[in-house]
Simulated assay, not measured.
Amino acid sequence: MHDLKDTIKEVVFAVIPLTVVVIILQFTIIWLPLEMFLQFLVGVVFVSVGLILFLLGVQIGLLPVGEMIGSALPKTNKLSLILFFGFLLGFVVTVAEPDVRVLATQIDLVSNGEISSNILIYSVALGVGIFVALALIRIIFNIKITHLLMVGYGIAFLLAAFTPANFIPISFDSGGVTTGPMTVPFILALGVGVASVLKGKATSSDSFGLVALASIGPILAVLILGVIYG
């Protein structure tokens, strides 16, 4: 019950400022049609209820399960198994990410179907899966994250020189949308679980940085897609 009250309070304080601003604009500058304004208010209610349910779901289900999976994988002592399930979990959670689907739908629309939504979704998911596995390697072998970030973005800027110009902004937006409400909690919990078991090699702080690395994967995947399309 305490978690429910905190979650409701958090959502209310997150949604109210935007709602107040739109209401002020409605009666001062923009004057939307009444029907559209009422749709906005109904949408605010739906969004608030949806966020409350989603955040409760994350706290009750996603975070504990992600952490348990992360702590169970290193106990197998099989690097290939850890990397495989790290890749698989990164892939499937990205396919389920609503932000990725919104971006893919918009790109499919503006490109008149030239870049289909399914191709973009699975390319982004593939990039996230590969880099989640790479992030787990970083935790296991205690590799400095700065080295991986420099190499990753170095490759991205190199690929950008050979990619059609219209793919470059899409690629960086693809990296941004993977830091959505579905992917981030699960990947962070997975990293915390892995790091908590490997305290002899890594501290729990090494679980952070997974999202930063995972967001490089979609950038590279879409840039490579641009090279292929180009």
Rank of each mutant, 00 (worst) to 15 (best):
R101F: 00
T179Y: 03
T163M: 12
I16R: 00
L34C: 01
M68P: 00
V11Q: 09
L88Y: 01
V92W: 07
N112T: 12
E67W: 00
K201A: 11
A214T: 06
T146G: 12
I69S: 02
L32Q: 12
S204I: 14
I228E: 09
A212E: 11
G61H: 00
L109Q: 15
L81T: 13
S71L: 10
Y153A: 03
D108N: 15
N142S: 15
I168L: 13
S174T: 08
A195S: 15
S196A: 12
T19R: 05
V151L: 15
L225I: 05
D6E: 03
Q26A: 07
F167E: 04
F84Q: 02
L32R: 05
A202W: 03
L41T: 00
V22H: 01
F85R: 01
A212F: 05
F85Y: 12
L56R: 04
P74R: 04
G209L: 12
F91E: 05
T146S: 11
L220E: 03
M36W: 14
D99Y: 15
I121G: 02
V194D: 03
L148V: 07
E97G: 10
T179L: 14
G175F: 05
L109M: 15
G209F: 12
N142M: 09
V93R: 00
V22Q: 00
Q59Y: 04
L34G: 13
A214V: 05
P164Y: 08
G193T: 02
I119R: 12
L210Y: 11
M182F: 12
F186W: 08
A165K: 12
L73H: 02
G180R: 10
I224N: 00
L63M: 08
K5D: 09
L18F: 14
G175A: 08
K199C: 02
S207H: 04
V92I: 13
D173F: 12
D6I: 09
F186D: 09
T163A: 13
I143R: 03
S116L: 03
V92Q: 00
